[in-house]
Nucleic acid binder design. Structure first.
Lengths: 154, 154
DNA sequence: CACAAATCTTGACTCGTTCAAGAAAAGGCG
DNA sequence: CGCCTTTTCTTGAACGAGTCAAGATTTGTG
């Protein structure tokens, strides 16, 4: 996944290839599950002039186009990842908010057979595992969910 | 589930029995999956003097105590329900944000066997089904996710 | 190279939620 | 039953992720 691939991805989705978009894709690749603020910070290391609105816009269109996946565990802000279309799920640490990938255990489309769907037409089943991450398990639970990884700026 | 039961629930959780708390419990019972604003509105029909902060506080302690369950699908505000401890899941309409209950199809603890959990200690698996609700399926998709049920006040 | 459409910058703003301080109510005890 | 401590609630300000809007730039096409 280099810039060349990203360019193809964008063109394939009928999106123009711009410096902000490439920078966002690189940032998301480097920081899986990063929130918008972290993506913005990472982007600005390479492209200092990119506005926060541009990052919101870019993450928005990339999500709609399926080039990135947006997740948002309860109590968390939106997070983004490049891994897409492989039906994996997420573990979220109740203590520090850390997110990790979990490959689907049941099959390609796990739990997609809900018993009574009340007439809803279901197109996706999203599984979120809740628990405690390794570092919060060993150390005494001091860290709060808000005090997570990278900080955001504005 | 009448006021008498609610009182027992509260005392059993070492919580004082107050008019705001009973009103919130009644509101959540009457409006499953209601957001905080809707709960506040419903509460004020019976207890006009209850502050919005009280509703936030009450919903907070009730959630911590396990008397109500808080859910928050991506892109939605927090929602609450009384159904608790029966491991059911939710379908969320991508178009209007409507939420419905779905009983667990796989078993008592579905999908709780993640393959590689990266050292996380998992205590819950939450399944969210995404799709389109009956009314958004038939009618052309006009309604937006933000224009949902009851309105909030302040 | 010029032009229309898409994209980005700038800056204000919305709204769900939280923070903080003091007033009011709950429940135990005498 | 009424006092006292603690919990809970009211009031009002503040926070912050995300959105809106208008105008400037850029992209890709003809």
């Amino acid at each position: 996944m280099d810039d060349h691939d990203f360019e193809h991805l964008l063109r394939g989705a009928d999106l123009r290839v711009t410096r902000p978009r490439l920078a966002v894709l690189r940032a998301v690749r480097r920081h899986p599950h990063a929130d918008t603020g972290s993506v913005l910070a990472a982007v600005r290391l390479e492209e200092p002039a990119v506005s926060h609105q541009a990052v919101y816009d870019v993450l928005g269109v990339l999500s709609e186009s399926g080039l990135v996946r947006r997740i948002q565990p309860a109590g968390s802000v939106a997070r983004y990842e490049l891994r897409v279309g492989d039906n994996h799920h997420h573990v979220v640490c109740r203590s520090c908010g850390e997110v990790a990938d979990v490959d689907c255990a049941v099959g390609v489309r796990p739990c997609l057979d809900a018993s009574d769907t009340h007439g809803f037409v279901i197109d996706e089943a999203e599984v979120t595992y809740w628990g405690t991450c390794p570092s919060c398990s060993t150390t005494s639970p001091t860290t709060s969910p808000t005090a997570s990884s990278a900080s955001s700026s504005n």
